[in-house]
C-alpha cells in the first residue's frame, strides 16, 4: 500500500522516545521513518554504531520491535542466517517468515561490513539493508570513513579528506540486486514508499539514506532537515532508484542551488571554503557534477 499522508504512518512507531541520541540527530529521524513505513512482522538487525549505542543504554531499550545487535562487520551475515533459518522453519510448518531489515551506519556498510554485505547480496537473501549515512564514524568520535566527502574535516583528517566518497549504490547494483535506492528524511513520503517497495521485492534490497549529524558536521541542531534538503537540492546527494539495473532519478534537480550554500552551513567544510583551498573546492564541485552527469546518462539509457 502506498503512503500518501502522514496519518498513514502515525501510531506505527518502532522506536521509543527517551533514547540517548544527540539533539537533532538525523540518523534517528531516518530510522524512525523507516520503521514507521515498514510492514510488520519484521526483525531489525543492527551492527555496532551510533544507532546501537543510542538506542540501548543499559538497562533500557528503545526498540519496540524484535532487534538483534551484532558486531560491526557481520550484520548482513547474521541477517542472512536469520532469513535462512526462518525460511526453513516456515517450510517445516514451525513458524512464519519475517521480513529482515538491517539498519547500519556508513562505517558498518561502506568499510567494515562491506564483505558481509557482498556475501549476503551474492547469495540473494531476502532482506532490506538500510544504511543511514552520516559520513564518518560519529559514534567513536568523528573519524573519517569511506563515506566522508572530499574536503570534510574529521578528527583523523584535520586538513580535510582528499579522496572521493565511495559509490556504494553502484557496488550493490553490480551485485545484481533487484532494488537499490537513495532517500532523504526530508522527503518522507518518498522514503516511506521506497521502504514499502523494497520490502515487497523478493531478494536483497538496499536503501541509502542521508543522515545529517549536528555533532560531526558542526551545525546547529535545528538545521538537520534543512541540511538534508540542501544536500538533495545542490545535487550533493541525488535521489534515485535502480530497479533491476534500470536507473531512475526520482527527484530531478533542473536548477541546482550553489554547492557553497550547503557547505557554508557546516563547519566541517570551513577548511574547504578557505581561499587557499580553491583547488579542493573545485574538486568537490567536479565530483558532484560528474556523478550527476553520469546519473543523467544512466537514466536516459533506460527510458520509462
Amino acid at each position: 500500500m502506498q503512503v500518501s499522508k502522514l496519518l498513514d504512518l502515525y501510531g506505527r512507531e518502532g522506536l521509543s522516545p527517551g533514547h540517548s541520541a544527540c539533539q537533532g540527530c538525523g540518523a534517528t529521524i531516518a530510522v524512525r521513518q523507516v520503521l514507521l513505513a515498514a510492514e510488520p512482522p519484521y526483525i531489525v538487525v543492527s551492527p555496532t554504531g551510533c544507532l546501537e549505542v543510542i538506542s540501548t543504554p543499559y538497562p533500557y531499550t528503545a526498540w519496540r520491535v524484535p532487534w538483534v545487535h551484532v558486531a560491526f562487520e557481520n550484520a548482513a551475515a547474521v541477517a542472512s542466517g536469520i532469513e535462512a533459518a526462518l525460511r526453513v522453519l516456515e517450510r517445516k510448518g514451525l513458524g512464519r517468515r519475517h521480513k529482515i531489515i538491517v539498519i547500519g551506519g556508513d562505517g558498518g556498510t561502506f568499510d567494515i561490513g562491506l564483505q558481509a554485505i557482498s556475501g549476503a547480496f551474492e547469495r540473494g537473501h531476502d532482506l532490506l539493508y538500510v544504511c543511514y549515512d552520516n559520513e564518518a564514524y560519529m559514534n567513536t568520535g568523528i573519524q573519517r570513513s569511506a563515506a566522508t566527502p572530499i574536503g570534510s574535516v574529521t578528527t583523523t583528517t584535520p586538513a580535510g579528506k582528499r579522496e572521493r566518497k565511495k559509490d556504494i549504490v553502484s557496488i550493490l547494483v553490480s551485485h545484481g540486486s533487484p532494488y537499490v535506492a537513495t532517500a532523504s528524511p526530508h522527503l518522507w513520503k518518498d522514503l516511506a514508499n521506497k521502504v514499502r517497495k523494497a520490502q515487497s521485492i523478493e531478494g536483497p534490497t538496499f536503501l541509502h539514506i542521508v543522515a545529517p549529524c549536528p555533532r560531526g558536521w558542526y551545525y546547529d541542531s535545528s538545521l538537520t532537515i534543512k541540511i538534508a534538503k540542501l544536500a538533495v537540492e545542490t545535487r550533493v546527494f541525488p535521489i534515485y532508484e535502480v530497479e533491476n539495473g534500470k536507473y531512475r532519478i526520482n527527484y530531478l534537480i533542473s536548477r541546482p542551488r550553489p554547492v557553497e550554500e550547503y557547505l557554508r552551513l557546516q563547519s566541517r567544510f570551513a577548511y574547504l571554503l578557505r581561499p587557499e583551498n580553491a583547488a579542493l573546492l573545485e574538486e568537490f564541485k567536479r565530483w558532484v557534477e560528474e556523478r550527476w552527469n553520469q546519473l543523467l546518462k544512466l537514466a536516459a539509457a533506460f527510458p520509462p
Binding site: 522506536l15 527517551g18 533514547h19 543504554p57 538497562p59 533500557y60 531499550t61 528503545a62 526498540w63 520491535v65
Partner: peptide, 14 residues
C-alpha cells in the same frame, strides 16, 4: 542484565 520491557527508554526523562 535483562531488559524486561520493549521500548522502556520512554521511562527515562531527557
Amino acid at each position: 542484565p535483562i531488559v524486561f520491557e520493549a521500548g522502556n527508554t520512554s521511562l527515562r526523562k531527557v
